[in-house]
């Protein structure tokens, strides 16, 4: 029983990070129907941007700020010079998907180029704190709390603010949004900026686990897809729920009663992803629509 609780706790930690990244991905998908294969590498970008700051001696919470701005800026910049122009040229979502694969490679290996293949960290990893039923490092706790705060902020924005409602409206029915007078281009750009900031933040959360390296986001990408698809693509709340389920499930699968080798735990998430797409493609919170 204790083993299970510890695994669940671990799952909540990684699930939180996946959730933050997944919400960014699904927000963009909601308005553009674009599956961005470079999304994981934006996590890495955020994590490394913070490494630059901490490497210069800044505490993480200070270094995080320019890192988040960089993330938002790059995503917003790409909308302006790449995605927007390609959409206006009539590029299909498949064209854009393939472009995103190329972008992922460019981004990732530029980070390799700049930072090499080494592993970085923000600071020393502290001892695990015993919470009785399970143990987590202080960093893990920060990750869970920090992610929850960000997700709560996003939820609040989507529910209560005018721009949040416009984002949801655009995701529901772009033509109707336009017919209502909503400035689609502006809302699209704001969505990218929010997604960029959120993803960079997610990367920093991921990095807090103690290892920042150039492949970190890429390794998480399929898990993020799993979380998004399980939750229902296009639904931010779905992405949060789906990601937590994915995070916890893959950890629990390594329970001694089940006996799955730790190497294969991501395989469990992958199987969930495939099953969902075959059996209930709209996921938990999605609406039944032509996929």
């Amino acid at each position: 029983m204790e083993e299970a609780l510890q695994l669940i706790a671990n799952g909540v930690v990684i699930g939180s990070v996946i959730a933050v990244a997944a919400v960014g991905l699904t927000l963009v998908f909601g308005i553009l129907r674009l599956i961005n294969f470079a999304h994981g590498d934006f996590l890495t970008l955020g994590a490394f941007a913070a490494v630059v700051g901490t490497g210069a001696g800044l505490p993480l919470y200070v270094a995080a700020i320019p890192a988040i701005l960089v993330g938002a800026g790059v995503m917003g910049g790409l909308e302006k010079v790449l995605w927007g122009p390609m959409r206006r040229r009539g590029a299909s979502t498949v064209n854009l998907l393939i472009i995103s694969i190329g972008l992922a490679l460019v981004l990732r290996y530029t980070l390799f180029w700049i930072f090499g293949s080494g592993v970085y960290r923000y600071g020393p990893i502290s001892q695990r704190i015993d919470f009785g039923l399970f143990a987590l490092t202080p960093q893990d706790v920060i990750i869970v709390v920090g992610s929850a705060a960000a997700l709560f902020g996003v939820a609040l924005m989507l529910q209560k603010t005018r721009i949040g409602k416009a984002m949801r409206a655009l995701s529901d029915n772009k033509d109707l949004a336009e017919a209502s007078g909503i400035d689609v281009n502006r809302v699209t750009m704001i969505t990218w900026l929010i997604a960029g900031a959120l993803t960079a933040y997610g990367g920093i959360m991921l990095g807090l686990q103690g290892r920042v390296f150039a492949n970190m986001g890429w390794f998480l990408l399929l898990l993020i897809f799993a979380g998004v698809i399980l939750g229902g693509i296009g639904s931010a709340y779905g992405a949060m729920i789906g990601s937590m389920i994915i995070g916890v499930t893959q950890e629990l699968a390594t329970h001694s009663a089940i006996g799955l080798p730790s190497d294969l735990k991501t395989g469990v998430a992958f199987l969930v992803l495939i099953l969902v797409l075959l059996v209930r493609p709209q996921g938990i919170m999605g609406r039944k629509q032509a996929l």
Binding site: R162, K165, A166, R168, A169, S171, D172, N173, D175, L176, A177, A179, S180, G181, I182, R287
Partner: peptide
Amino acid sequence: GYVPQTENVFPTLTVEENLEMGAYLRP
């Protein structure tokens, strides 16, 4: 103002939010 024949509401938005979007230009 324009009302399309099909798909003429925002399904995941509440009635009130649908109306709010209608007045997006003049909140």
